[in-house]
Design a protein around this nucleic acid. Structure first.
Length: 501
RNA sequence: GGGCCCGUAGCUCAGCCUGGUAGAGCGGCGGGCUUUUAACCCGUAGACCAGAACGGGCGGAAGUCCCGGGUUCAAAUCCCGGCGGGCCCGCCA
């Protein structure tokens, strides 16, 4: 909007105040009902009151059509000078696009068959000084504006609003599902003295009361396990984790995870939990277990892939997946041959070469993105899974899986390591890697080891990336499309009505 | 960390290659129109500063075509360096 238009509206606000009309009244004159209710059960000949934002004004001489949006639902208003008299002129002179108004009138169908309110009276409910940036129903083209001023993106574009409605319904249904399975929803610290539960760089903050540097959690894992030790058999937590790493289409520094832990369960139970959770949530929110997701083919074309979320999902060992999808039989390769492959694909291992980590790297590079249909990749090399119990049949592997859908890593789960001596050994090895330059190695958490020494039952644990799950369920290819306010570089201060900020 | 693309009126974009008056549509403002729905038709202001404000007229000290330099008689346009955004690659299990 031009500066001139902003000034015009500021003057209009002043004019209204002088006339004794509050542009920001405390109460509505006509008790409104939701537009949604009117649209769901349309009746004609009845009087209704509604409130909402003016998003369209179409004038035809002595009559005018107005589009009003209330809580995401649009209804048309009809104002006729012959019926409204001076109030018609007042509306045209004082109501602008973007304003909130409260109207009262009778429902009828126009010649074109649209349910419309024939306005008999109205009031200004809140003045907008800036007009909407685009016509209602259109997309804001500038992605920077969309992300920085998400309120405009949602205000003007119903499809965008729909994505976020879906997002929060998904989270609601996850809760309902977990509750129905007997899990207790808990909260654990976001500010932690020792971070852990994942391999990632943390955000550091300072606690003035203690004069100590603390961390924003990279995962709630070690606290949730403490609750299993405490004697809660089934717990889960939904919340933000913070990882001080790159921002791209699959990563935002703060993101939402659901983690669940269950005593006397193992990673097989967690697979069943995962596929039941995801398919049930899809069914409840979308009414289907089949979703479409845009996928780029090798030719560079984008096609809609239909993804079937119904259980059971495919289960395949990581080394078998490398054989099946990348034609690599890593179990028969020497370390030198694997190092050669790392060179070929320009992959580096932080903290120095280590066979297990190298195999996982090759998997991520060559296989992960090919896994479009839901797939559990099971049995990771033990060396790169320091919180996981070794495989019951072959201790070179860990009882760990990752779930992939649409090429996205969606979940990560273990049969949890509950041997404190082994856990301490793994922590020491992680400390060694940290010294060798692996900035993401786990720090030694002696307090957690002590907790394990009191005895933790056999436990299955699961982490689900909620943002990525919502990407799959909404067909979004960027995590920024499913996070309300994604992290962006700080903006320069700008002029607003209250001056420089 | 590497590469590619974009940044011009409130919005969407043209102009840039080939340097020489900065344009269109939408939106705004004014007018017309009794059933429209991205309404339509006619007119008009609007890109930086600015004379208190507003309306009308006049004017240039000049004028941020993201910012700062450079080349040139002359830069939105060419060159260099930034900033912001998007995408790809690497890293992030």
């Amino acid at each position: 909007m031009s500066q001139i238009e902003l000034e015009q509206r500021k003057r209009l606000r002043e004019k209204l105040l002088k006339e004794g009309i509050n542009p920001y009244p405390h109460q509505l004159k006509f008790a409104p009902i939701p537009v949604k209710e009117i649209l769901e059960a349309p009746k004609t000949g009845v009087k209704v009151a509604v409130a909402g934002r003016v998003v369209g004004i179409r004038r035809h001489g002595k009559l005018v059509f107005v589009d009003l949006v209330d809580d995401g639902y649009r209804i048309q208003l009809f104002l006729y000078k012959k019926e409204l008299g001076d109030k018609f002129d007042w509306f045209m002179d004082n109501i602008d696009l973007g304003d909130f108004i409260n109207v009262y009138g009778e429902l009828f169908y126009t010649k074109r068959g649209e349910l419309t309110i024939r306005v008999e009276d109205y009031m200004l409910a809140a003045k907008a000084l800036r007009s909407p940036p685009v016509k209602y129903g259109h997309r804001i083209m500038d992605t920077e504006v969309r992300y920085r001023k998400r309120y405009l993106d949602i205000m003007m574009t119903p499809q965008v609003r729909k994505i976020f409605e879906t997002r929060f319904k998904v989270i609601e249904e996850i809760r309902k599902f977990m509750w129905s399975q007997g899990y207790l929803e808990v909260e654990t610290p976001i500010l932690q003295p020792v971070y852990g539960g994942a391999a990632a760089k943390p955000f550091i903050t300072h606690v003035w009361a203690l004069d100590e540097d603390w961390y924003l959690r990279i995962s709630p894992e070690l606290y949730l396990k403490r609750l299993i030790i405490a004697g809660f058999n089934k717990v889960f937590e939904i919340g933000k984790n913070f990882r001080n790493e790159d921002i791209d289409v699959h990563h935002n520094p703060e993101f939402t995870m659901m983690e669940a832990y269950e005593a006397y369960a193992d990673y097989n139970d967690m697979m069943r939990l995962t596929e039941n959770l995801v398919s049930t949530v899809a069914w409840k929110v979308l009414g289907t277990m089949k979703v479409k997701y845009p996928v780029e083919t090798e030719k560079g074309e984008t096609i809609e892939e239909t993804i079937d979320l119904s259980p059971p999902w495919k289960r395949i060992r990581l080394v078998d997946a490398l054989r099946e999808y990348a034609n690599l039989n890593v179990e028969e390769l020497s370390d030198d041959q694997i190092k050669e492959l790392l060179r070929e694909y320009q992959l580096k291992i932080a903290g120095g070469y280590e066979r297990g980590r190298a195999i996982i790297k090759l998997f991520d590079r060559l296989v992960g993105r090919k896994l479009l249909q839901p797939t559990f990749i099971i049995d990771f090399p033990a060396s790169a899974s320091p919180l996981t119990k070794p495989h019951r049949e072959n201790p070179e592997y860990a009882e760990r899986f990752e779930a992939y859908i649409a090429g996205l890593e969606l979940a990560n789960a273990y049969t949890e390591l509950n041997d404190p001596i082994l856990q301490a050994k793994y922590f020491r090895e992680e400390e060694e890697r940290k010294k060798k330059g692996d900035v993401e190695a786990h720090p030694y958490d002696w307090d957690f080891v002590e907790a394990l020494e009191y005895g933790m039952p056999p436990t299955g644990g699961l982490g689900v990336g909620i943002d990525r799950l919502i990407m799959v369920l909404t067909g979004s290819t960027s995590i920024k499309e499913v996070i309300l306010f994604p992290m962006m570089k700080r903006e320069e201060a700008r002029e607003t009505t209250s001056g420089k900020q």
